[in-house]
Amino acid sequence: MSRLICVDQDGRFATRSAVDSLSGTLHVSAVAPQEQWVELLDQPVVRLKVDAFSDGRVFSIGRQLRLNGFRGRLEVIGDLLPDQLPMAVAAGIDVVWISLEHADRCDESQWRQKRGKARFGYQQSANRPLSASTA
């Protein structure tokens, strides 16, 4: 059974967990159509699984959920890159679960560093919705 590490919005490594214990995980492809994600708006926790870091759908799903009033906790399961943490935060994602093997290579210091500097971009003024942890 593979185990996962939870990375929070500040890039800190927290809980370890077995994949099986993360219940109710939805594959990102099942959620992407508009009819599907609107169903999730009143859920307390939404867990989205991505197969590859290059699948950028999670960022738009997160953004749309937050824009449409989702106040729950949004988790992504998949080996995102530390460089994507600021994007995940901007999209309203609360935590990212990554594999132990991935966490070995992309260690906590890399994630911390990406978060250490506040996200800097042209969209800062665009009134981005807050995530559960900061709402």
Partner: peptide
């Protein structure tokens, strides 16, 4: 250009 540059949602499009 400014809007699209480093837009957090659109760095990993299809």
């Amino acid at each position: 250009r400014q809007w699209s540059t480093d837009h957090p949602e659109f760095q990993f499009l299809p």
